[in-house]
Design a protein around this nucleic acid. Structure first.
Length: 474
RNA sequence: CGGGAAGUAGCGCAGCUCGGCAGCGCACGUGCUUUGGGAGCACGAGGUCGGGGGUUCAAAUCCCCCCUUCCCGACCA
């Protein structure tokens, strides 16, 4: 039951955590997964945080169908080229071959923009600020639970605007106010927001923005994307409106999404050799109380005190683990594996002394509190743990971020695959391709906050026009 | 789709080379003893050996085909 060590075999560790913490298991069809209650509860917490922010930034939820006529996909050239290889097609239904095949949506721009063409006549109909929570299907080469499954859950926002400036502002607002904020404040995971290079752009997008997180094996994970689509989809699906001065124009678009991949991100950003470490913001159980006893009398008295403490923890997701069939040591390990931030141990010795023993998951340390103080101290401790998880992850990222001076340094660092490398780039797709050919690493993003880029491209020596963040990626 | 490994009880595996009663550990059921870091003993239940075909008196084992999973690539949220 012991987990593989992260340092020995990170993929094996990841798979064991997912399985042993009962988050998910793979299902019958290739690349599909059953999300089990512990994993789904984490997803629900993430959903809630993301959905709150989507609503707070002025969007409404709606729902489009899973099945889309195949011809719709053909209408946007780059989009079909990008997605066709991984689209699942329904050819038969009702015992007959369909006259027109249907695809299982890999994303919904096509059906949504085709529909928007009926909804938009005038600039007064804009903007459309809609989001949906949905499942999508992508027939990827190599599935990995949560990170890349054939079917996954996500939200996808699709907005239509009167001007390009407005659509771009929307794209960036969602990136920062919804995604980066959720990553930092809820997942407690530091991310680098940035722009994708043309090679890494979403098919059909004019500009793709991303947030990139660093996993504890040194690889980067694209944790969320927000796309400025310009007028590409409006032109492909004929979404026109009459503007303020009477002329007919195409609408401007954004689309953006985060998925169940975020669960994998949390596992690999915070997890340690004992298993998951969850911030309280997404923990299905924030505090677990483990009673310790020998006799039935002790059991009764310990549980009475334990339940009293639980009742006193107002607004905290607390569980008294009163299962009689497991011993305390087993429960300690199990809740550590599942990532519960705080464990309270309570036995006859504690009760005699008027104390509880409090173990924190982030540091694996124990402290002693008086029973009376527990109600007041739990919430501050949860906050402290959440802050510490973020700090630890940020320190890890800083320790694993290099600023190489020469191409040899960049190449060696990227080949080792131990983190981010930040360097000047001349913007040429050929230099980007050279790095990928030499190291298998990619430009994860181009920094947003850099103004005038100084210095030279680390590959070509020509003047740099971008500051690029390179890494091996999932 | 290319390279590698593997499918045997819920999980992890041995058995296969050299064909001959389907096993081990954990988990599971019952009972007793236990309980402050993954308890002990006893008894017990659980199997189309990934699927199909072939060879043979006899196949988990040998041969052929197929499927699936994992790892490494190319693709990707």
């Amino acid at each position: 039951m012991a987990l593989p060590k992260q340092a020995d075999d990170f993929p094996a560790w990841y798979q064991a955590v997912v399985r042993d913490a009962q988050m998910a298991e793979s299902s019958l069809a290739r690349g599909t997964m059953v999300i089990k209650p512990w994993g789904y509860a984490i997803w629900e917490a993430i959903q809630r945080a993301v959905d709150d922010r989507i609503k707070a930034t002025g969007h409404e939820n709606l729902y489009f169908p899973t099945l889309i006529p195949e011809r719709l996909l053909q209408q946007e050239a780059e989009h079909v080229e990008g997605f066709a290889p991984e689209v699942a097609v329904v050819t038969h239904a009702g015992g007959e071959q369909l006259a027109e095949p249907l695809i299982l949506r890999p994303t919904s721009e096509t059906i949504i923009w085709d529909t928007y063409s009926k909804w938009v006549q005038s600039y007064r109909d804009l903007p459309l600020l809609y989001n949906q929570w949905a499942n999508v299907f992508r027939w990827e080469m190599r599935p990995r639970v949560f990170l890349r499954t054939t079917e996954f859950l996500w939200q996808e926002g699709h907005t239509a605007h009167e001007t390009g400036e407005e659509a771009m502002a929307e794209t960036l607002r969602v990136l920062h106010e919804v995604y980066v904020d959720t990553a930092r404040e809820v997942l407690r995971m530091p991310v680098i927001p940035g722009r994708k290079s043309a090679a890494e752009r979403f098919p059909g997008a004019v500009e793709t923005f991303t947030m990139e997180a660093l996993m504890r094996d040194g690889k980067a994970l694209q944790a969320g994307t927000s796309h400025y689509l310009g007028q590409n989809f409006a032109q492909a699906y004929d979404v026109t409106f009459q503007g303020r001065t009477g002329e007919v124009e195409y609408a401007y678009a954004s689309s953006w999404g985060v998925s169940t991949r975020l669960i994998g991100a949390v596992i690999m950003a915070h997890g340690d050799d004992k298993g998951l470490r969850l911030p309280s913001t997404i923990a299905p159980v924030q505090v677990v109380i483990v009673p310790i006893y020998k006799t039935d009398d002790e059991r009764a008295s310990v549980l009475e005190v334990a339940n009293g403490i639980a009742r006193g923890l107002d607004g905290v997701k607390v569980k008294v683990d009163d299962r009689d069939e497991y011993r305390p040591g087993y429960k300690f390990n199990e809740w550590e594996l599942k990532g519960v931030p705080v464990r309270i141990e309570l036995g006859p010795r504690d009760i005699t002394a008027g104390n509880v023993t409090v173990a924190r998951r982030d540091l694996l340390t124990k402290e002693t509190w008086t029973i009376e103080s527990a109600a007041a101290r739990v919430r501050p401790l949860l906050d402290e743990i959440d802050t510490n998880l973020y700090t630890q992850a940020l320190e890890f990222r800083e320790e694993h971020t290099a600023r190489p001076e020469t191409y040899e340094e960049l190449r060696d660092f990227l080949k080792a695959g131990t983190g981010f490398a930040i360097a000047g780039w001349d913007g040429d797709p050929e230099t980007e391709a050279k790095v990928k050919a030499d190291t298998k690493a990619t430009i994860r993003c181009l920094r947003l906050e850099t103004g005038g880029v100084e210095g030279t491209c680390i590959v070509s020596g020509k003047p740099a026009v971008e500051e690029a963040v390179f890494a091996q990626a999932y």
